[in-house]
Amino acid sequence: MTSPQSVIEVRDLTFSYGTAPVLEDVNLRVEAGEFLGIVGPNAGGKSTLLKLILGLLEPQSGHITVLGYEPRAATRRLGYVPQYPSFSREFPITVEQAVLLGRIGRWSPAGRLGVWAPIRVGKADRQVVRRVLEEVEAADLARRQVGSLSGGQLQRVLLARALASEPAVMILDEPTANIDLRLESDIFDLLKRLNARMTILVVSHDVGFISGYVARVACLNRTLVCHRTDAVDGRVIRALYGGQVRMVAHRH
């Protein structure tokens, strides 16, 4: 067990898909109510770390606890926004229905049998769906087919689906990679508001941009290069990317 304030604790984590480890000796603690950014170059292991925290992958060595449990046991209390939607855009489903699926797992099991029981959707669930769609400013999309949405609209809907589970922690993988700049700041403003009631963990390759929003960054390139509370400066970025990187301040 970890201390009650620690939401995610990663200890001595090493993970490999094949011959070379993608993550090596990673140690990370995320406190309740934090807004943590994980930055780093492509193929630096950011998405893999998220998948390990979510319990989608099993670490070969090291330990992860999420909300005091093994990742698999805590999964349903996490909201996850993937970088790429893992569904076909042609699937016949409305935004409302897709977000409603985020509610699954709220019906907590009476013992292990819960997951085998048929799912019943009630009025309260539909109210939550309406509320989260309003929260991400996508209420007008409720009746639209998921396949007809633009990239930015889809991102909001994925966010709403994650929120529908009323998670304790939101985990987002490059939430703004496929959308334009104005929407990007919209989404980060929204995350900032959400941070008032939940812990947020966001992965991004855009160091300069997220440093304006997050309280703390962890820089990941196979292992944690830096792990600090103060603002990211040029020296840190050079250490992380190994070269001269132009840093653009995006203060709005």
């Binding site: 999964t75 699937f91 489903i93 699954i104 797992g105 997951v115």
Partner: peptide, 26 residues
């Protein structure tokens, strides 16, 4: 009829279904 939500979740997005604790393989 009984499992329409589980089937919908698994048919639509297996990864998400797994994260919502649905026994996807089953």
């Amino acid at each position: 009829g009984a499992y329409r939500y589980q089937f919908l979740a698994v048919a639509f997005d297996e990864e998400h279904a797994r994260l919502r604790d649905i026994p996807v393989t089953f």
